[in-house]
Design a protein around this nucleic acid. Structure first.
Length: 701
DNA sequence: GAGCACTGC
C-alpha cells in the first residue's frame, strides 16, 4: 500500500547548503577570525604549556585528543582567548570545543587564580563531559575536573575545571553575584537559548564589568555556540570577536518534497517505507513527530504494515521515543537491532538535542513540533503544533550524519523551508518570568525592569511576573525600587516555582509541612503516573484505590504514601502504572526541600489524616489560580473569567465541585486546568480579602 | 465530554 503511494520527494542534492555541510561558509557578520584545521592564518607551533604527564601514558585518549581538528589551532586559539575578556566561539559538532577549550585554558594557566566553569543546559551532558575530560587528564572525576548538578556535587578543593548546568550556576549567583570563585565562565550550547543561559548572559556580563571596576580578578567570558548566526552574541558582549572552528560533520544529502504536504503523518509513513524497501537493513531511520499520541499511532501503523511486506524486504523494529516513556523503554533505542532488522525510531524533539542515537543514516523531518507559545494578549501559554525554525530543522538534519554521511528527507518544500523562522524564539520570551525575576531580585540586581537581557521579554510579560510576585507577598516597593520582602528572600532559596515556594512557607501555619513537601515535590517533577493509551481501562481500575474526591493533590499524596509503604518496590510501580524513575526523583526533591526548610528553622509537622488543613494551605497560597463553577455547568477562572475546563487526566474530570484551585493552565484544544484541589470559597476570601474585593469590582464593571 | 513538546534549580 504505501509503497504504491508515490514518494513525495524531488531528488535534489544540495551540497554545502547548510551549516552542516563540510564546506561550511564563513559566518555572517563583522570581525571573524578564521581558525581552521590547517592552522588558518599561521601555523606556528606553540611550545607545550603546562602539559601534564600525559606522555607517560601513550594511550588512545591522548591520540584521539590530538587528532581533533581543534588541536592544530590550539596555540593560536589559546593566544587569542588569553588576551580577550570575552569571545564567541562557533564550532560545528565534532569540533571538540567543549572538551578541549577548558583544558587549553587550564594548561594556559587561566585556571590558576580561579575555577573554569563550563555550563550545559542538561545534567547528563555536564556529568558525561566531566567524566570525559577527567579521563583525558588522567584524573578521577571530582579532583582536577568535576561537575555540579542538582543533587550531585562532584567537586573538591582541587577542582579547576567544573562542568555544571546553567541553572546551577545561576543558583550559585544568588549567593555570589560576582562569581568570585571563577576566573572564566564558558557558556556552552548558547544557541539553545535556555532561560537559564539567557539570564546568565546578563549575570556574567554584569559580574565582568563590576569586577573590573573593583580591580578584582578579571572574569573571562566565552560563549560557545553551534550556529553561525552569532551577531547577537557578539554585539551583546561589546563586540566580542567571533572565532570559528571547523568541525567533523559528515556530509548529509537533503531532499525536499516537490509539493507541500497537507498530511505530514501520511508523508512520513510513505517516506519510511520507501526508505525501508530501498536501503540495507543496517541503516536506521529517525522520524521526528510532535507528541506521544501521534508517535504511538504511527508506531502501530508501521508495525502493522511491516507484517505484510513482500519477501526479501528487511524486518522492522519500530521504537517510539518521548520523554514520558518509561526509562526502560527509552533505553531500547540504544540497543542494536537483531540481524536483518532495521530500527525505525519515531521520536519527539527529544532526539534533537537530549538523546543522541548512533547508527542513524536517515532522518525524516516533518518540520513540525509541539511547543509552548506565549500569547501576550491573553497572557496565556499555549501548547500547539507549529513549524520548526530553520535552526531546529538543521539540528534534526544533523542527526543523520554523526558517524558517516547521511540522508535527510524534509517533508516540506524548499520554499516552505525558506519561510521558516530563522531561530526558535528564546525561552525567556515564551514563558512565565516570575521565577527568573525572583532570582534576579535575590541577586540584588539594581533594577530588574532595566536588566540587560540579550533578548528582552516584553514589558507586559515582565509586569505580569511582578504582579504575580506581588500577590505572593514577595515584593517591596521602596523609592521606585523593587526589592524582596523577607518572605520573598526565603522563597528564592527554594528551587521551585515561586507559588510552590510560598505554599511551603505557609504550611507551618496549617501544621502540614510534611504533606505539602510531598505534594509540591510531586508537582514539580514530571508526572509519576504512566498512562499508556492502549491499557486505559486497566489503568483506571488499578488507580481507583488511590483516588480522593478532594482532588489530584490528595490523590497524589495517597500514591506517594503507598509507594513509601512498599519501600519503593519496582514491581508495585509497574503493577500500578507508576513511573518509578520519576517517583525516585520526587523523593530526592522532597529531601532537598526539607533540608532547605530545616536550614530556615521551619517547624516541620504532619497533619496526619487531616486533609482539610492541606487544602486550606493550598487555597491560601494558590488563591490566584482558582476557578468557579458557572450556572451553565462550565468553569471560569476567578481572576479574569477565562473559560476553562477540567483536564481529562484529573480525578475530578467527571465531578463538578463549586470551587477549585489549579496548579497549571494548559491551552491545547481548550484551556484546561491541571492538578486540581477542591476548596471552600470562604478559605479563598480569608486568604486574600483585598484581592477578591478587587476581583468582585472588576466582575461588576 | 475527552488529552500532556522539552529542559532545569
Amino acid at each position: 500500500m504505501p509503497e504504491e503511494a508515490g514518494f513525495p520527494h524531488a531528488k535534489r542534492f544540495r551540497p554545502g547548503s547548510g551549516p552542516l555541510s563540510r564546506s561550511g561558509s564563513c559566518p555572517p557578520g563583522g570581525r571573524v577570525v578564521m581558525l581552521t584545521a590547517d592552522g588558518g592564518g599561521g601555523r606556528r607551533q606553540q611550545p607545550p604549556l603546562a602539559q601534564p604527564s600525559a606522555s607517560l601514558y601513550p594511550e588512545a585518549v591522548e591520540l584521539q585528543r590530538r587528532s581533533l581538528p581543534i588541536f592544530q589551532a590550539r596555540g593560536q586559539l589559546l593566544a587569542q582567548l588569553r588576551s580577550l575578556d570575552s569571545a564567541v566561539l562557533i564550532g560545528e559538532t565534532g569540533s571538540g570545543k567543549t572538551t578541549q577549550i577548558p583544558q587549553y585554558l587550564y594548561e594556559g594557566g587561566i585556571g590558576r587564580q580561579g575555577i573554569i566553569a563550563v555550563t550545559q543546559p542538561r545534567r547528563v551532558a555536564a556529568i558525561s563531559l566531566a567524566t570525559r575530560v577527567s579521563d583525558e587528564k588522567r584524573t578521577e572525576v571530582g579532583k582536577l575536573v568535576g561537575y555540579t548538578v542538582r543533587f550531585d556535587d562532584v567537586t573538591s578543593e582541587d577542582t579547576r575545571i567544573k562542568f555544571l548546568t546553567d541553572g546551577m550556576l545561576l543558583r550559585e549567583a544568588i549567593s555570589d553575584s560576582l562569581l568570585r570563585k571563577y576566573s572564566c565562565v564558558i557558556l556552552d550550547e548558547a544557541h539553545e537559548r535556555t532561560i537559564h543561559t539567557d539570564v546568565l548572559f546578563g549575570v556574567v556580563k554584569a559580574a565582568q564589568k563590576r569586577r573590573k571596576e573593583l580591580g578584582k580578578l578579571p572574569l573571562k567570558v566565552i560563549v560557545m555556540s553551534a550556529t553561525m548566526d552569532v551577531d547577537l552574541f557578539s554585539q551583546y558582549f561589546n563586540g566580542a570577536p567571533v572565532l570559528y572552528l571547523e568541525g567533523r560533520q559528515h556530509p548529509i544529502q537533503i531532499f525536499y518534497t516537490k509539493q507541500p504536504q497537507h498530511d505530514y503523518l501520511h508523508a512520513a509513513l510513505v517516506s519510511v517505507f520507501q526508505i525501508h524497501q530501498e536501503a540495507p537493513s543496517s541503516q536506521d531511520i529517525l522520524v521526528f513527530l510532535t507528541g506521544q499520541e501521534e508517535i504511538e499511532a504511527m508506531s502501530k501503523t508501521c508495525r502493522d504494515i511491516a507484517k505484510h511486506l513482500p519477501d526479501g524486504c528487511p524486518s522492522m523494529l519500530v521504537l517510539p521515543l518521548y520523554a514520558s516513556l518509561p526509562y526502560a523503554q527509552q533505553l531500547r533505542v540504544f540497543q542494536g537491532a537483531p540481524k536483518g532488522y532495521r530500527k525505525v525510531i519515531i521520536s519527539t524533539n527529544i532526539a534533537e538535542t537530549s538523546i543522541t542515537i548512533t547508527g542513524i543514516k536517515y532522518v525524516v523531518d516533518t518540520g513540525m513540533v509541539k511547543a509552548k507559545k506565549y500569547n501576550p494578549d491573553s497572557g496565556l501559554e499555549v501548547l500547539a503544533v507549529q513549524r520548526v525554525s530553520k535552526t531546529q530543522a538543521w539540528q534534526r538534519t544533523g542527526r543523520a550524519g554523526r558517524e558517516e554521511s547521511g540522508i535527510c528527507y524534509r517533508l516540506y518544500t524548499e520554499d516552505e523551508f525558506e519561510k521558516f523562522e530563522k531561530m526558535t524564539i528564546p525561552e525567556i520570551q515564551r514563558c512565565n518570568l516570575a521565577g527568573v525575576l525572583l532570582q534576579l531580585l535575590a541577586m540584588k540586581v539594581p533594577n530588574v525592569l532595566t536588566f540587560d537581557f540579550m533578548s528582552k521579554p516584553s514589558p507586559d510579560h515582565v509586569q505580569a511576573a511582578i504582579a504575580q510576585l506581588d500577590l505572593l507577598g514577595a515584593l517591596e516597593h521602596k523609592d521606585e525600587q523593587l526589592t524582596l520582602t523577607p518572605v520573598g528572600r526565603k522563597m528564592a532559596a527554594f528551587p521551585l516555582e515561586p507559588k510552590f515556594a510560598k505554599t511551603i512557607l505557609l504550611s507551618p501555619k496549617f501544621h502540614c509541612t510534611e504533606e505539602i513537601l510531598t505534594i509540591v515535590s510531586l508537582l514539580s517533577v514530571d508526572s509519576v503516573l504512566y498512562n499508556p493509551p492502549s491499557r486505559r481501562d486497566e489503568v483506571q481500575s488499578v488507580r481507583k484505590k488511590f483516588i480522593s474526591s478532594e482532588g489530584d493533590h490528595i490523590t497524589l499524596l495517597n500514591i506517594y504514601r503507598t509507594f513509601k509503604n512498599v519501600g519503593g518496590n519496582k514491581d508495585w510501580c509497574k503493577e500500578n502504572f507508576v513511573n518509578s524513575k520519576n517517583m525516585m526523583l520526587v523523593a530526592e526533591v522532597r529531601a532537598q526541600l526539607r533540608d532547605i526548610c530545616l536550614k530556615m528553622s521551619m517547624p516541620i509537622m504532619s497533619s496526619r489524616g487531616d486533609t482539610e488543613n492541606i487544602r486550606r494551605c493550598l487555597a491560601h497560597s494558590l488563591f490566584m489560580s482558582t476557578a468557579e463553577l458557572q450556572p451553565d455547568g462550565t468553569y471560569a477562572t476567578t481572576d479574569t473569567h477565562q473559560p476553562v475546563a477540567i483536564h481529562p487526566s484529573s480525578v475530578l474530570f467527571h465531578c463538578k465541585p463549586a470551587c477549585l484551585v489549579y496548579t497549571e493552565l494548559l491551552h491545547t484544544n481548550k484551556c484546561y486546568m491541571r492538578d486540581l484541589c477542591v476548596v471552600d470559597a470562604d478559605w479563598l476570601y480569608e486568604a486574600a480579602p483585598e484581592y477578591f474585593r478587587r476581583k468582585l469590582r472588576t466582575s461588576r464593571s
